[in-house]
Design a protein around this nucleic acid. Structure first.
Lengths: 195, 195
DNA sequence: TTGTTAAACTAATGGAATTAGTTTATATTA
DNA sequence: TAATATAAACTAATTCCATTAGTTTAACAA
């Protein structure tokens, strides 16, 4: 249209994220993004490096938003309450922005430093919230993997509507986190009893 | 090429599943499938209903294979051992056939009966393995959601190489399952103590 | 005011899915 | 055995998408 539409990279990324949320991953095409922005698709190349570049930027944006949501959920909480609040923020984010969450999982490049850093910040959040359980170096690493699996698994199934039954998913998640934390304590007690 | 290449639906589905495993989800195109089978892409329409139809069939096939793998892992085991063996079979399947596993998660249609049934058989397997823990109707439903989340979350992260650290993933998974089961027992004991 | 730059554009290419219509090998049947 | 019906391949053509090349023009700076 007009020779200056006032676009920039961030505008493209935000619009692409909304496209993902409303229409799913497949809807994120340069054609539909350009149409939404009132521009021809080649014009987008002034701001991004093709579709793969856009996907990478959206993934980074999604990880950043997820990090912010988890941090906000944490909000000065400690112990079990911190784990639960962080997890609930994670699941809520995936439910609120299903397309954006899905795009954070598709890593077009393994050698993408910015993407790795964004993922690392989230990892540090999870590590931090489990640190006070004093699991030892190795035990902590296993626990982090466990909690990541729980968060992603629940969020993904919840996000795609994989839980068919008419049962409050918030309760299911609380129970899952509580079960995990109770298991950590019990296993620790078992280990002490054996010692 | 020849007017009769001897193709049938199952051949297409198997080849598409291998394409998914070797090249990822994006590689499953009618063009590459046709090339692999030595045929022109329109010829595939004699056996499938376009790309969406193929994806649905591959998803059904993947769920069936996953069900068989989980059943085989179960193999007469009981209690904790059964949960662990079934879970390990699940994770191993996702690791062995990453593309096929990924395709089981994309549900093109919600109204696909065959796909729902395939998913239900897997759900029944999970329900069965948790039945002996006597959690009550509601508690069992929550536990099923929890175990499903754990299985999918761990499998997905493992399958896409999401666990970067040099630490045995098999041990991580054993610990996660044991923690979950210990948590179920501990929470049950807590409830009894309160009663 | 004039020149540079960046952001839009048009045009064109190539690849993918899909549809329509055609050919032909195989199977059925008279 | 010969004719016919069917199914599975084909070619041709359309549409949509990503991408590249080259062009125009608004905005900014000297």
């Amino acid at each position: 249209m007009s020779p200056r539409a006032g676009l920039d990279t961030q505008t493209l990324v935000l619009a692409a994220a909304e496209l993902a949320d409303s229409g799913g991953f497949e809807q994120v095409t340069l054609a539909s993004l350009a149409a939404r922005l009132g521009v021809r698709s080649p014009s987008l190349y002034n701001h991004i490096s093709g579709l793969d570049g856009l996907r990478t930027l959206v993934a980074e944006y999604g990880l950043e938003e997820l990090y912010l949501a988890m941090s906000a959920g944490l909000a000065g909480k400690k112990g079990d309450a911190a784990v639960l609040a962080m997890g609930e923020a994670y699941v809520a984010f995936a439910g609120r922005r299903p397309g954006l969450y899905a795009m954070t999982l598709r890593a077009p490049q393994q050698s993408d430093t910015a993407l790795q850093e964004a993922g690392n910040r989230i990892l540090q959040l999870i590590i931090g919230v489990l640190a006070e359980y004093r699991l030892g170096t190795e035990g902590e690493l296993h626990a982090v993997r466990g909690l990541r699996s729980i968060l992603h698994g629940f969020a993904a199934l919840h996000s795609i509507g994989g839980f068919g039954m008419p049962l409050d998913t918030a309760v299911s998640f609380q129970r899952l986190i509580n079960t995990f934390l109770a298991g950590i304590r019990c296993m620790g007690e078992d280990a002490e009893e054996k010692a």
